[in-house]
Lab assay of single mutants.
Amino acid sequence: NKFNKELGWATWEIFNLPNLNGVQVKAFIDSLRDDPSQSANLLAEAKKLNDAQA
């Protein structure tokens, strides 16, 4: 379904953000699993944090 596809894509993108540490990645992935409907918002937050830590 739509959420599974978005969840998978967001998970892959978060895993590939180079400036996040393992704890941050795990926290974002756990949040995605808790509420897949928020995948776009969580991915945006992860990208912002990644950019801030560059």
Score class of each variant (00 low, 15 high):
1 N>D: 14
1 N>V: 06
2 K>C: 15
2 K>F: 09
2 K>P: 13
3 F>I: 14
3 F>L: 12
3 F>D: 12
3 F>Y: 08
4 N>K: 05
5 K>I: 06
5 K>A: 11
6 E>I: 10
6 E>L: 12
6 E>D: 10
7 L>S: 05
7 L>P: 04
8 G>W: 15
9 W>C: 15
9 W>I: 11
9 W>D: 13
10 A>D: 07
10 A>K: 04
11 T>S: 11
11 T>H: 08
11 T>L: 15
12 W>H: 15
12 W>I: 11
12 W>P: 03
12 W>G: 12
12 W>R: 10
13 E>A: 08
13 E>P: 04
13 E>T: 06
13 E>G: 02
13 E>V: 14
13 E>N: 03
13 E>I: 14
14 I>L: 09
14 I>P: 02
14 I>Y: 03
14 I>S: 02
15 F>N: 10
15 F>W: 08
15 F>Q: 14
15 F>M: 15
16 N>Y: 06
17 L>M: 11
17 L>D: 01
18 P>H: 06
18 P>I: 06
19 N>A: 05
19 N>C: 14
19 N>V: 01
20 L>P: 00
20 L>T: 00
20 L>A: 00
20 L>F: 01
20 L>H: 00
21 N>I: 07
21 N>R: 05
21 N>Q: 06
21 N>Y: 07
21 N>L: 13
21 N>S: 14
21 N>H: 07
22 G>K: 11
22 G>I: 12
23 V>K: 12
23 V>F: 13
23 V>T: 11
24 Q>E: 02
24 Q>L: 02
24 Q>C: 03
24 Q>P: 00
25 V>T: 05
26 K>C: 15
26 K>V: 05
27 A>K: 14
27 A>Y: 14
27 A>F: 13
27 A>W: 13
27 A>H: 13
28 F>S: 00
28 F>V: 01
28 F>G: 00
28 F>P: 00
28 F>N: 00
29 I>Q: 02
29 I>A: 03
29 I>W: 04
29 I>N: 01
30 D>I: 14
30 D>R: 10
30 D>W: 03
31 S>L: 12
31 S>M: 13
32 L>Q: 01
32 L>D: 00
32 L>F: 03
32 L>P: 00
32 L>R: 00
33 R>L: 13
33 R>V: 09
33 R>G: 04
33 R>S: 06
34 D>F: 10
34 D>G: 09
34 D>A: 14
34 D>R: 11
35 D>K: 09
35 D>S: 05
35 D>Y: 07
36 P>C: 08
36 P>F: 04
36 P>Q: 03
36 P>E: 02
36 P>Y: 04
36 P>K: 02
37 S>H: 05
37 S>G: 08
37 S>D: 06
37 S>W: 05
37 S>I: 04
37 S>T: 09
37 S>P: 02
38 Q>M: 08
38 Q>F: 12
38 Q>T: 05
39 S>F: 10
39 S>K: 05
39 S>E: 06
39 S>Y: 10
40 A>Y: 08
40 A>D: 08
40 A>P: 05
40 A>G: 07
41 N>V: 12
41 N>W: 13
42 L>E: 00
42 L>Q: 02
43 L>H: 02
43 L>W: 04
43 L>M: 04
43 L>V: 14
44 A>P: 01
44 A>R: 07
45 E>T: 07
45 E>W: 05
45 E>S: 06
46 A>P: 00
46 A>T: 01
47 K>I: 12
47 K>F: 04
48 K>G: 06
48 K>L: 07
48 K>Q: 09
49 L>Y: 03
50 N>G: 02
50 N>P: 00
51 D>W: 06
52 A>V: 10
52 A>W: 07
52 A>P: 01
52 A>G: 06
53 Q>S: 04
53 Q>C: 13
53 Q>I: 08
54 A>K: 09
54 A>W: 06
54 A>V: 08
